[in-house]
Design a protein around this nucleic acid. Structure first.
Length: 469
RNA sequence: GGAGCGGUGGCAGAGCGGUUGAAUGCGCCGGAUUCGAAAUCCGGUUCGGCUUUCGGGUCGACGGGGGUUCGAAUCCCCCCUGCUCCGCCA
């Protein structure tokens, strides 16, 4: 959520920011509603102040009179009762007016909140302006020694690549038909070494983050309440993408949603809390099953492990003080952890600066990391795929947008005493999402005979096994 | 699923219809004491909205939402949530 005060002061900044992201929230209406609400509120407050003043005077008086009433004789009783009734009647008009104003204010609020929640965080000025993913900008590229970006897979390795789908079939790593039988399209079953490799990469990723990078591992819910989805910024915008468990319809008090990323659970941890500055930054990592409806992606990436409804992901988040420089540094650090991981696995990849049109509501800045997938992309005349980058990671910098929604704050406790409570900054980034990461892993490590070498770092996690097939 | 008891400031924990934004303790901040520190003593310390001549003013909030009342943390209703016992399952 953006800061309503900041919006009032400089609406243009938010109008422009939204436009850059291809959003067009009705900011004019919001400002009008906000104006109306404030004017009604101050009118109401004046009345309430008068009412409070009055009741402060009459309260003790009534108390006294009621006391007298008990010990009074019949003649006095009538007089005292009359006095009490008169006092009681006084605030009646005010009360009516206040109630009426209440109703008017309540009427404005749903629309106001709806628009407020939908206003995107303006992108940072150094984020390139663009329409969509086609305008993203490559900022760096890495490949292990011996890999020449100017050459095809075949020229690099001396044989034609098989796609991960072929490799999976060859070694019984995935059973697609049975996955579909059980759970419908975009479903799959990891089998044997496929499942082992999946577990190996996840475990390797979480161990690295925990043991080398100082993150605290967590297990968090993946079945959450709507508040967690709204708080983390996925709702209302991304409602279509989440599976909805309709518990209220069967007598439960509220509905539940399946999370599309561990970020929801991790960020929800400190919802409504005031954190001690000394505890910050908080660095959390989780591995969780992620669920995505992939609404609107019909017909896209239908084959293989690329776009599926359910997968497992190791996710990192950092929560820290509201300091732009620190946020920027964390962002770099988090990408560094991923790059080191990919380098240790020998996977060619690049960093992509996402343009404004590709950011989504909650990001000020986002950098995707894409791995080279030799089995993707267009086919050469002889039917050999030419390879293509595929998104495997996404690193977001959110400022206080998410923490404001989550009401997650800290007390700045510098030497000069305590400042006002302040919303934290948050960031998140993928560490490893599998089985998607198995695509580059299998395709880059395939041998001419179709066997697949296990990356050195994963061998310990495969019980010493060095090869599939 | 049945029965019972709870949810109060950063934390613990009183208050259970009358001025109470809330005793007390811990923590935290400032001061005194001390060569310095600990201990002790004194003072301060909830969060948010609106407004402001930046001194302040004002409203709201005791899990959430409604209601009763001149007046609600306190009474009533619904919801969320925690704990204990019983049942069921593992």
């Amino acid at each position: 959520m953006i800061d309503l005060k900041a919006l009032r002061e400089n609406p243009q900044r938010f109008i422009d920011g939204a436009a850059k992201k291809n959003y067009a929230p009705d900011i004019d209406t919001l400002l009008k509603l906000d104006e109306q609400r404030r004017s009604l509120m101050s009118e109401q407050e004046t009345l309430k102040a008068a009412q409070n003043k009055l009741s402060k005077e009459t309260g003790p008086k009534i108390g006294q009179l009621m006391g007298k009433l008990k010990s009074a004789n019949d003649d006095e009783k009538a007089a005292i009762q009359g006095e009490v009734d008169a006092i009681k009647a006084a605030p009646a008009k005010m009360k009516e007016q206040i109630t009426a104003l209440d109703a008017q204010i309540a009427q404005l609020e749903p629309k106001l909140n709806e628009i407020l929640l939908s206003i995107p965080l303006p992108p940072d000025d150094d984020v390139p302006v663009g329409k969509g993913s086609e305008d993203n900008v490559e900022i760096s590229k890495w490949a292990p020694e011996g890999w020449d970006w100017g050459k095809s897979f075949e020229q690099n390795k001396g044989f034609k690549p098989r796609t991960h789908i072929e490799l999976c079939a060859m070694h019984n790593l995935v059973d697609f038909p049975r996955g579909v039988k059980i759970a419908g399209s975009r479903s799959y079953v990891l089998t044997g070494d496929g499942m082992r490799l999946h577990q190996a990469i996840l475990r390797y990723a979480i161990d690295t983050m925990t043991n080398e990078n100082g993150f605290t591992p967590m297990s968090v819910p993946v079945l959450v309440r709507e508040e967690a989805m709204v708080g983390t910024g996925f709702f209302p915008g991304g409602r279509d993408q989440a599976y909805h468990i309709n518990e209220s319809e069967r007598g439960g008090g509220y509905d539940m949603f399946l999370t599309g990323t561990g970020e929801v659970g991790l960020m929800g941890l400190h919802q409504d809390e005031i954190l001690d500055e000394a505890q910050l930054p908080l660095k959390y990592v989780t591995v969780s099953t992620c669920f995505r409806r992939e609404a609107g992606a019909a017909g896209k990436d239908t084959a293989g492990l690329y776009r599926i409804h359910q997968f497992d992901k190791v996710e990192q988040v950092i929560i820290d003080v509201a300091d732009e420089q620190k946020s920027r540094q964390h962002h770099k650090d988090m990408m560094g952890f991923v790059e080191n991981l990919l380098k240790s696995l020998g996977l060619p990849h690049r960093l992509l600066q996402c343009c404004t049109g590709d950011l989504g509501v909650k990001n000020a800045d986002m950098i995707d990391i894409e791995c080279w997938m030799p089995g993707r992309g267009e086919e050469a005349p002889d039917g050999t795929p030419m390879g293509e980058f595929g998104e495997t990671h996404s690193a977001s910098r959110l400022y206080d947008y998410q923490c404001r929604r989550l009401n997650m704050r800290y007390r700045p406790g510098g030497e000069n005493g305590k400042g006002p409570t302040t919303f934290c900054h948050s960031l998140n980034n993928t560490v490893a999402a599998s089985p998607r990461i198995l695509i580059p892993l299998l395709e880059m490590y395939q041998n001419e005979d179709g066997s697949v070498t296990i990356p050195e770092k994963l061998v310990p996690y495969m019980n010493g096994q060095t090869k599939i097939g």
